[in-house]
Design a protein around this nucleic acid. Structure first.
Length: 287
DNA sequence: AACCAGGGTGATG
DNA sequence: CATCACCATGGT
């Protein structure tokens, strides 16, 4: 692996990683990466960036070698052996062979905690297209436009904490408005220290996040998995509930070994795109 | 028109 | 502890 500086970014040469951005950025763990001109664009840490992979090279636009080493490698989890996890999961149940055949290269991101928290509060009892629409409104109305682009920053918790439910009406998030406001208040006041959660064990961190109104077991596990990289987390939404009931006969996440979070991501993404799998398993014709 | 979407809360048994 | 109506909104 080698870093090359380009006119406006960085190329990581010869990476030994299976990452597939298409699958990683469209598997339901993030809502703000957009494909445009064969590159994925987003605003992360208040900067617009673009990324794409060609062969074993990854190109990052609008960043530096230093930021790549200190941030992006970790954000995209490029130094972790996902192939080893694949081997393990495929030995546990045949459904993983099908999932990896179609969707290999999913990595668990390390997103910004406040954005993940806010986004998954919005996700509750909601569908992905509308989640994206609401988050987009939140950013265009309360974020800042980045010069020379069409992209906006994700509004920080200080800004949101000064709003009221009336202010949030334009984003059409319905009953979730007061949950967003409560999260912003608890975070900006310091009652909940999102930075410090990195140093706290998973159960304690979950307990802390659940002090926020509207944040329960599922949302807190999403935040811990997708922002804090707690791979033991296993968020169960309506799809995962169905999968665990039909394919895995109501067993719990212990059967997935050390990385239930990764298993969850493959199962969720695969079955959402192949819902017939649930019927097959229900009558015991899988494998 | 009724049901669903990456759920959680509060009331009730 | 388990169940259940309800919570806004938009798509089917």
């Amino acid at each position: 692996m080698q870093y090359l500086k380009t006119s406006n970014g960085v190329i990581i040469k010869n990476i030994d990683s299976d990452i597939n951005f298409e699958h990683t950025l469209n598997c339901g763990q993030c809502f703000r990466w957009e494909k445009k001109d064969d590159k994925y664009h987003a605003v992360v840490k208040n900067e617009h960036v673009a990324v794409y992979k060609s062969g074993s090279d990854i190109t990052l636009e609008n960043t530096t070698i230093e930021n790549t080493k200190n941030f992006w490698i970790n954000y995209f989890d490029l130094n972790f052996n996902y192939r080893g996890v694949q081997k393990e999961l495929e030995s546990i149940h045949p459904i993983f062979k099908k999932a990896y055949k179609n969707y290999s290269g999913i990595h668990i991101l390390s997103q910004e905690p406040w954005e993940a928290l806010c986004s998954f509060i919005i996700s509750q009892n909601n569908n992905i297209p509308r989640i994206k629409k609401i988050i987009n409104s939140l950013c265009t109305i309360f974020g800042e436009k980045i010069n020379g682009t069409e992209f906006y920053t994700f509004p920080n918790h200080e800004i949101i904490s000064r709003l009221n439910e009336k202010d949030l009406e334009p984003i059409k998030c319905g009953f979730r408005a007061r949950y967003i406001l409560d999260a912003a208040l608890k975070v900006s006041s310091g009652e909940i220290d999102l930075e410090n959660l990195k140093n706290v064990n998973t159960n304690k961190a979950k307990e802390t996040l659940m002090k926020i109104k509207g944040v329960g077991s599922k949302i807190s596990e999403c935040v811990l998995l997708y922002a804090y990289h707690k791979l033991e987390c296993f968020p169960i939404d309506v799809w995962m509930k169905k999968i665990m009931h039909t394919v895995f006969k109501d067993q719990n996440s212990d059967i997935f070994g050390k990385y239930p979070g990764i298993a969850q991501q493959y199962l969720y993404h695969y079955v959402k795109n192949n819902p017939g799998e649930l019927n097959l398993s229900a009558v015991g014709q899988n494998s």
